[in-house]
Amino acid sequence: MSVLGVTAIVVFGVASVVTGWLVFRTDSMVRAAYWLMASFVGVGAMLVTLDSQFLGLILILMMAGEMTIMAIFMVMYMMNPAGLNPMVMVHQHRTAIAAGVGSFLLLATVALVADFPADPAPAGADPTAELGFELLGRSMLVFESAGVALLAVMIGAVAVAGKWGRFGDADAGSVEPPLDPEEAAS
């Protein structure tokens, strides 16, 4: 890999890690969602550098839609969505930090210690076409089951989220929780 390529990898890698970190450092839900998108864009750019142009760009394309939906839903369901009052909404903070650092160290050690076979992807091939043949050839079942899974998700999501269901309104019979936690406990 050329010097330029390595530089690009380092820049995009640092960018995606930093933006990934910023997701949990901001109070504004819109910013959090778009920091996450930035992290995905950084990874997408790394994929492009790793000779998989198609996967990198499609990741960016998908994430633009998905992260806007993320932002919309986060604004919808978070109190103080724009972070006008600074807030901390975390629990088991120390455990979480330990788990995060631990998993990083574990994975990084594995990455550095393990001996990977060097068998680079051949240059000059068209990976997109290969993916196409794979999808339509021996992995056809994966492809079609993805379709069925997506259909299941669509119907499930619409049925769960929609207001109007086959069995009446979705919020029928629900009870609003009391404001006072003591009252709720009793």
């Binding site: 990898i9 990934g20 970190w21 990874v43 790394m46 790793l50 995060g100 650092v101 990083f104």
Partner: peptide
């Protein structure tokens, strides 16, 4: 190197 980046992003994800 890339796997270390990947591990870092994963760690942040676990924390989050």
């Amino acid at each position: 190197l890339i796997l270390v980046f990947s591990a870092a992003i994963f760690g942040i994800g676990v924390y989050g």
